[in-house]
């Protein structure tokens, strides 16, 4: 039996974010920002054209105006998405979860128990076949199961050793373990 007493802090959250986000997600986020900047630039150009040629062909002015409005709305939508995703990441970084969680790994499965600050308690008993994914990053391990995920450090093991735990994870979970 391997016992872990994990006290979730900002370091755990940062590690979890690092495990979730890859280069692809960061480039996608920057792409959204670039799209927003391009659309704002296009919008400014069309407004400039409408103003410059205000004595000109009405049909063309309406075309520029419609394109400008479409560009503006696209720019605002993309910027709003970028801001929302960035704000969510900042809130996660800044939050201090302060949750105490106990995990017990046995032969057939594991048990996770925690109590949130507002008094909501959780106890989950999982057979290893229920585990969806395990991700390791430095000395952090994230284990994802139905209704629950846990992040803990190898240094938080209070019963058993890190080698025993890694052997259990490799043996029971095999290709569901990813190293980042």
């Amino acid at each position: 039996m391997i016992r872990i007493d994990s006290h979730r802090t900002r370091a755990h959250t940062r590690a979890e974010i690092r495990m979730m986000f890859s280069f692809r997600e960061v480039m996608l986020l920057l792409g959204i920002l670039a799209l927003s900047v391009l659309c704002f630039g296009f919008c400014v150009y069309t407004v400039y054209a409408v103003v410059k040629y205000r004595e000109g062909f009405r049909y063309a002015r309406f075309l520029y105006l419609t394109a400008g409005v479409a560009g503006f709305v696209t720019a605002v939508t993309a910027l709003a998405r970028f801001v929302l995703y960035s704000a969510a990441a900042v809130v996660l970084f800044a939050a201090n979860p302060d949750i105490h969680e106990e995990l017990i790994f046995e032969d057939e499965g594991y048990t996770a128990r925690n109590t949130a600050k507002n008094g909501v308690t959780f106890e989950g008993r999982y057979h290893y076949s229920a585990v969806k994914k395990v991700t390791t990053y430095k000395d952090f391990i994230k284990i994802e199961s139905p209704e629950h995920s846990s992040v803990f450090r190898l240094s938080e093991i209070t019963g058993g050793t890190a080698e025993e735990l890694m052997a259990v994870l490799a043996g029971k979970l095999g290709d569901r373990v990813t190293h980042k």
């Binding site: 008094g119 909501v120 308690t121 999982y126 139905p146 209704e147």
Partner: peptide
């Protein structure tokens, strides 16, 4: 109490929450 094929989850929600 949620019971699946290979897991059981027990949650308590105080009524104030």
């Amino acid at each position: 109490i949620k019971t699946g094929e290979n897991f059981t989850v027990h949650r308590d929600f105080p009524y104030g929450t």
